[in-house]
C-alpha cells in the first residue's frame, strides 16, 4: 500500500513493452534529474531537475493556440510561431492546447499510485522474468519516492529493476538492494580521469557503491556504453573484466553501443545536436570487445541492442 498520496515523482516517460531494460517485457519509468552530464547522453531531457518544455517546430501549424494561453509572452505567432525559451516558465498550459504536440512538457509529476496503476497494467506480459525498471535520469535522485515505488511494485508481486549511474549516497544501498531485484549498474568508464571529463563526475563513488551493493548481496548487471575512440581501449575493458571478477552477484556485462540518437533529442530542448557519428562503434568492434571480455571469464549478456 502506498500511504502518501501526495508524494509525486517527476516522470518524463512511462514506456511499456520494453525488451532491453532488464529481462523479459518491462515497463520503464523514466525520472527527471541526473547528477551526471554524459556528453553522449541519449535521454538529455532527463538531465535537468527543473521543468522544461520540449519544442518540435516541425510539428507546428502556427495555429496560435499557445499564444492565447501563455501569460509569460514566451509564445508569439504572427506569420509563424516563435518560442522564446528564456521567457518560458514551463507551466505547460501551451502543451494542453497545442493540437499537434509541438509543445510538450518534458516532465509530468505523477503520484506513486498513478505510476503503480500504470505499471501493473502489463502484468500478464511480465511473466516470471519481466516487470518494472526505474530509469532516467537517475532514479536515486528521488530516493524516497523511488524506494517507495520499488517497494509498492514488489508488494504487487512485480519483478523490480533499477537502472542507475551509481552516483548516490551509500546510505541508500541497503534499502535499495532489498527492494530492487536487479540493479542495472552503468559503468561508463573505468578510467577515472576520462569519466570525469565525459560525465562531469569521477567514478570513485560509483564503483565503491557497486562493490558495496555486491557485498550486501545486490544482484547486478553491468551496463557499459561503448563509445568509439573514447573508451574502446583494451585497458578499460580489461578493468571491466577485473571488476566483474571482483563481484559475487553480478549476472554479467551488457554492452550499450553509443548511438547518435541522443544528439537529436537535444533539439527540442533548444540545444544543438551534439551527436557524433564517429563515436558509433562498428559491429566488429563490439564483437572484439565481447570476445575480449569472454576470454577473461566475463558473462556477456547479449541484449543485441
Amino acid at each position: 500500500m502506498i500511504n502518501d498520496k501526495h508524494l509525486t515523482l517527476p516522470v518524463t516517460e512511462l514506456q511499456r513493452f520494453c525488451m532491453h531494460d532488464g529481462p523479459g517485457i518491462r515497463t520503464v519509468v523514466f525520472f527527471k534529474g541526473c547528477p551526471l552530464r554524459c556528453v553522449w547522453c541519449h535521454n538529455p531531457e532527463t538531465q535537468n531537475s527543473h521543468g522544461e518544455m520540449l519544442y518540435y517546430p516541425e510539428r507546428c501549424i502556427s495555429c496560435g493556440g499557445c499564444m492565447s494561453v501563455c501569460s509569460h509572452k514566451a509564445q508569439n505567432v504572427t506569420e509563424t510561431h516563435v518560442f522564446d525559451r528564456s521567457l518560458c516558465a514551463a507551466c505547460g498550459l501551451c502543451a494542453e492546447v497545442c493540437p499537434t504536440e509541438a509543445m510538450m512538457p518534458a516532465v509530468k509529476d505523477m503520484t506513486l499510485e498513478s505510476i503503480l496503476s500504470a505499471v501493473v497494467r502489463d502484468r500478464s506480459f511480465f511473466g516470471e522474468d519481466g516487470g518494472v525498471t526505474l530509469s532516467g535520469g537517475e532514479p536515486m535522485m528521488h530516493p524516497e519516492g523511488a524506494l517507495r515505488l520499488l517497494s509498492a511494485c514488489k508488494e504487487a508481486g512485480l519483478h523490480t529493476a533499477i537502472e542507475t549511474s551509481g552516483e548516490f549516497s551509500r546510505m541508500l544501498i541497503p534499502s535499495l538492494i532489498q527492494l530492487a531485484d536487479l540493479l542495472l549498474w552503468d559503468v561508463k568508464d573505468t578510467n577515472n580521469e576520462r569519466h570525469r571529463q565525459y560525465t562531469g563526475v569521477p567514478n570513485l563513488r560509483i564503483l565503491d557503491n557497486l562493490r558495496l551493493a555486491d557485498r550486501l548481496g545486490g544482484r547486478t548487471r553491468l551496463r557499459c556504453i561503448v563509445v568509439e575512440g573514447v573508451n574502446t581501449d583494451d585497458a578499460h575493458w580489461d578493468s571491466v573484466a577485473a571488476l566483474y571478477g571482483e563481484l559475487n552477484c553480478c549476472e554479467g556485462v551488457e554492452l550499450l553501443p553509443y548511438h547518435a540518437y541522443g544528439g537529436s533529442k537535444m533539439l527540442p530542448l533548444g540545444l544543438s545536436d551534439n551527436g557524433r557519428k564517429d563515436w558509433i562503434p562498428t559491429d566488429e568492434r563490439l564483437n572484439n570487445i565481447k570476445k575480449r571480455l569472454r576470454e577473461r571469464g566475463v558473462t556477456v549478456i547479449d541484449g543485441s541492442r
Binding site: M19, H20, G24, S124, F125, D129, G130, S304, R305
Partner: peptide, 22 residues
Amino acid sequence: SSVAGEDGLNALVSLMRGFVAE
C-alpha cells in the same frame, strides 16, 4: 531490433503468454 538477442527472445515468448492470459 526489438526481438533480437536473448532478451528479445524471452520478450517474444512473454508477449505470446500475455496474449493468451489477456
